[in-house]
């Protein structure tokens, strides 16, 4: 029974179930083919297309761990995409590696600056995260629109397009980018003490301050990370479409990212976080998305399914449903001991 108690058991089980249902409903779902030394198929598409959401959700995990939230990630994506493509558009040689490098670096730096701004509002001015980032969420798309002059800038640049659609060895480049990001963030959080200190700040900010934790810096770091990752996500998104669309780039991605983080078992109340959980959460969201497409549902109607998933997941996490579950279990004679958790909560 120990494996069932692991915090990643249920998120992983949900993902596996979803994949199995998909495969049963349509055996083509799981089909992967090798062409010219490159893998194709639905699972590969999921790995490739999940890159922007994965990066954003990774940053969101850190921010949520500090008890915060970053609503501005979609807007940051729009800005960074707009910056990258506008630079390419203005450069003399959009297809040159040099101009692409400049475009990417500047776009990511813009994401960093916006992350610094969010972190400043939250950690220095002490503004509620939801509002502090709402400011940029509102204003950011406006800024992106100004950068692109209100048009959808389209650019031709083979090296830039390679970022989202190219292949390294047999797998998509975008996949390698997010794997690298996951590894770097994991190492940074778990091989140093950053992860534990972040959790401490998220669980009890005042106790952490009195224990000497530099919580301002830690919270700030989380928003900066989120900004940088959203900046990279914006670059990848723009590379995929090769068009800077200030309105649709990263649209609703903050909500999908939050959903992915919660699906991965990290509580929105902050504290304990799981990067592996977030990876599973993002995969679940992507699998659900492609399942919906596969079933022939118009993409526009997909949100109904997401609503259903959100509701099911939060109900499964709810203590009230747990206690129902226990009483049903008892009725069925399953050996689950009833506990008095509800009561304990009141007592605490």
């Amino acid at each position: 029974m120990k494996i069932v108690k692991h915090r990643l058991f249920w998120p992983a089980a949900a993902l596996v179930t979803l994949l199995i249902i998909n495969t049963i409903a349509n055996p083509n779902f799981a089909r992967v083919t090798l062409q010219d030394g490159q893998l194709y198929g639905n699972p590969i598409n999921i790995l490739r297309e999940s890159a922007p959401l994965m990066l954003v959700a990774l940053g969101m995990t850190l921010v949520i761990a500090t008890r915060g939230i970053d609503l501005s990630v979609g807007a940051i994506m729009a800005v960074s995409g707009a910056v990258a493509l506008t630079i390419l558009d203005a450069s003399e040689n959009p297809g040159g590696l040099g101009s692409v490098a400049v475009a990417v670096v500047v776009a990511v730096l813009v994401g960093l600056v916006l992350g610094v701004w969010n972190g400043f509002l939250v950690s220095v001015l002490g503004i509620q995260p939801i509002i502090a980032t709402l400011v940029l969420m509102l204003a950011g798309r406006g800024v992106a629109l100004l950068i692109t002059g209100g048009f959808i800038t389209t650019v031709n640049s083979a090296p830039y397009k390679f970022i989202a659609t190219g292949y390294l060895v047999v797998l998509p480049v975008a996949f390698f980018i997010w794997v690298a990001a996951v590894v770097i963030v994991s190492v940074l959080e778990r091989r140093t003490a950053l992860g534990m200190l972040t959790e401490a700040v998220g669980i009890n900010p005042e106790a952490s301050r009195l224990a000497g934790v530099r919580s301002r810096g830690i919270i700030w770091t989380a928003y900066i990370a989120s900004g940088v990752l959203a900046g990279i996500a914006g670059v990848i998104f723009a590379s995929n479409t090769m068009a800077a669309d200030a309105n649709s780039a990263g649209y609703l991605i903050e909500l999908y990212a939050i959903l992915a983080v919660v699906l991965g078992g990290t509580s929105l109340m902050g504290g304990k976080f799981s990067i592996a959980g977030t990876v599973i959460g993002v995969m679940t969201v992507q699998a659900l998305n492609s399942a919906i497409l596969f079933l022939g549902v118009p993409p526009a109607q997909a949100p109904v399914f997401f609503a259903a998933v959100v509701i099911i997941v939060v109900l499964l996490q709810s203590p009230r449903v747990h206690s129902y579950g226990r009483s049903v279990g008892q009725l069925l004679g399953v050996g689950v001991k009833p506990t008095r958790e509800d009561k304990k909560e009141v007592a605490a």
Partner: peptide, 27 residues
């Protein structure tokens, strides 16, 4: 009901409402 009886944070519960409303509109 999600907020009150199932302890779901308003942000998340109304996020479900956002998805639901938008999806139903397209339905």
């Amino acid at each position: 009901v999600l907020v009150q009886y199932f302890n779901v944070q308003p942000f998340i519960a109304s996020l479900a409402g956002l998805f639901l409303g938008r999806g139903l509109a397209y339905v």
